[in-house]
């Protein structure tokens, strides 16, 4: 009897394991709400031991906002006068949260925080701290939320080199480093360059620091570069994060006026384009 139950459980485990995450996350929502509830209390007890907590939190929040503002201003410096004339948005709405649990394999891939949809958190909201990007929220219930960090293989962030404006995708490389992908071999990327979010993709606002280029080498295909990025955030030591709750972009996106491109886009409505065969 026990053997049959064991086989049934193994089969059930396999089925659950291979379910898509869209189904898995709702399944685990209510058990997590109940079973992880004590973590909030444990966290409160631990946090009460820390003195001057509120001041510290306020200062961290202030620093984070100033960092964002600094990033905005840096972005403006890089842009041409048309973008420089666009309005800079005011500081975003941040919700501070404490990390109450970490995933059991690595401790850095998934973080559970003590804030939830009661605090206006929602799925896909970006999570940052003083030093830069941490990840995004992938699940939230009435008590906790789960963050998928940049060190999780599942998370990919659209990014750019702040100096040379080369675009690419940041993704997991190993448990301490990230990889900046799809930078062409002739792209100007140097060691020490700062990689920040590009704002493409719509989740992360533009200009948030992700990390610093540590190593570049030519891909075996000779088409792309292999760029290793050291994250600006130490994922092992963070205990507090900030969630950006409002949709922000660091400045109004530059939309070119049609008149400037009349020559390039001299298309007339109603006349279909015919392919040219050479």
């Amino acid at each position: 009897m026990a053997k049959r139950i064991f086989i049934f459980i193994l089969a059930l485990g396999f089925v659950i394991f291979f379910l898509p995450s869209k189904i898995k996350l709702p399944i685990t929502k209510y058990p997590r709400f109940i079973l992880l509830y004590p973590l909030n209390g444990i966290n409160q007890v631990l946090s009460n031991l820390k003195t001057h907590r509120k001041d510290f939190q306020y200062l961290q929040e202030l620093t984070t906002q100033l960092k964002i503002e600094n990033a905005q201003l840096r972005e403006k410096v890089f842009k041409n006068h048309e973008i420089a004339n666009s309005p800079v948005l005011v500081n975003s709405d941040l919700v501070s949260a404490n990390i109450i649990a970490r995933d059991n394999e690595t401790g850095v891939k998934f973080l559970t925080i003590d804030k939830s949809n009661r605090n206006n958190l929602a799925i896909n909201m970006p999570v940052i701290n003083v030093n830069g990007v941490i990840g995004k929220i992938i699940e939230t219930n009435n008590n906790q939320s789960i963050i998928e960090t940049a060190l999780s293989p599942g998370l990919k962030i659209s990014a750019l080199d702040q100096r040379s404006r080369v675009n690419g995708i940041i993704e997991y490389s190993d448990l301490s480093n990230l990889r900046f992908k799809y930078a062409f071999s002739e792209s100007d990327i140097q060691i020490g360059d700062t990689i920040s979010t590009s704002g493409l993709g719509g989740i992360f606002p533009r200009g948030l620091v992700i990390g610093i280029v540590m190593r570049t080498q030519l891909d075996p295909t000779h088409f792309f570069q292999y760029v290793e990025v050291k994250p600006s955030v130490n994922f092992n030591t963070i205990d507090q994060v900030f969630i950006i709750t409002s949709k922000i972009s660091l400045y109004e996106e530059y939309i070119p006026k049609a008149s400037q491109y009349d020559d390039l886009y001299n298309l007339k409505a109603g006349i279909p384009m015919t392919p040219r065969i050479r």
């Binding site: 394991f17 079973l35 992938i138 999780s152």
Partner: peptide
């Protein structure tokens, strides 16, 4: 263990059982 690693929920059930 699966609750704090929700994208891999099910894996720990198999391994630990």
């Amino acid at each position: 263990l699966g609750l704090v690693n929700p994208l891999h929920f099910g894996f720990h059930i198999i391994v630990l059982s």
